[in-house]
Design a protein around this nucleic acid. Structure first.
Length: 288
DNA sequence: ATCGCGACCTGGTTGC
DNA sequence: TGCAACCAGGTCGCGA
């Protein structure tokens, strides 16, 4: 569910809560979200308690909290994962899976209470947490994840070239996290609509100019979504305070099957694509 | 190299 | 009202 703008909203929300805080306790309420942890819950807890956290980082849809010995708590929200910041005495959310107690001063003691609990809440449990030993840089578990469009070190020319050399369909390339990360089904459909590209066009059939326009469309869509606090259809996606974003009001094609295209009034179509749905305008977005 | 598919999960909505 | 089928924004691994 959460794509780059939603994960970045969570990262920004967590930053002042986590930076400089000490982990005083961890409780694993369900084993599923730490399935990737070698050694299971005991090791997970042992490696976190007593550690100090730095500012959280992100690549694509992955988030990690650097810890004081060069390792990190690596997290993916999956389809329904949330990080919630609560008073430890507040009632547990129904799908709370892991609770992490923090103490010590945050950056701003007026807004960060002395004792806080960060809860990983995940209804469907496609998300996960694990301690990674990658050193200060990118956790090795996500070495295959390409830079995202918000990454200042992204080599856009190389990315355009990679896309143009591929016989894959452009929507599959946008969704492939080892090509460019952070884009999921919603923003892929939105970017393709904005750039007037049919998702089944092969990468090799697109001009460099068109690929650039498509990447710019994806970047702009995600930038606008981030400014709105992310996209949400319901309470499944929320920020660290449990609030939903407003970008769903601005979606141009996603979820608009049968409704008029906002450019040409042609009814938006929905078709199956790689085990999910694609939404597009059959007039604005012609196959290449 | 690429694709479709199933698996991993829960729960809300839809239709009979 | 009950119940089954279908749907959901992600990722991984399999076999073709």
């Amino acid at each position: 569910m959460p794509e780059l703008p939603e994960v970045e909203t969570v990262r920004v929300g967590l930053a002042p809560i986590l930076d400089g805080r000490l982990i005083t306790g961890v409780s694993v309420l369900h084993p599923r979200p730490i399935r990737g942890q070698d050694g299971g819950a005991d090791v997970f807890v042992h490696r976190l308690v007593g550690r100090t956290i730095a500012t959280p980082l992100r690549r694509g849809k992955y988030l990690w909290w650097p810890l004081d010995r060069g390792d990190a708590l690596l997290a993916h929200l999956g389809m329904s994962g949330q990080f919630r910041v609560d008073d430890p005495a507040a009632p547990l959310q129904r799908h709370a899976r892991v609770c992490i107690d923090l103490s010590g001063g945050g950056q701003d003691p007026r807004t960060t209470p002395h004792v806080t609990q960060v809860r990983f809440v995940d209804q469907r449990m496609f998300g996960g947490l694990q301690v990674s030993f990658g050193g200060a840089g990118l956790p090795p578990e996500i070495a295959h994840i390409a830079r995202d469009l918000f990454d200042p070190e992204l080599d856009r020319t190389a990315l355009v070239g990679r896309i143009q050399r591929s016989s894959s369909r452009i929507k599959a390339l946008l969704l492939n996290q080892s090509v460019v990360s952070g884009i999921g089904n919603i923003y892929a459909d939105e970017a393709l609509w904005r750039a007037r590209v049919h998702g089944e066009t092969r990468g090799e059939a697109l001009s460099a100019r068109k690929v650039h326009a498509l990447l710019t469309a994806a970047f702009d869509t995600m930038t606008e979504a981030l400014a709105q606090g992310g996209t949400s259809f319901d309470t499944l996606y929320v920020n660290v305070n449990g609030e939903s974003g407003y970008f769903s009001r601005r979606l141009n094609v996603y979820g608009r099957e049968g409704e008029a295209c906002l450019r040409c009034q042609t009814p938006i179509r929905r078709v199956a694509f790689a085990n999910r749905s694609s939404h597009f305008c059959p007039r604005c977005q012609r196959r290449g």
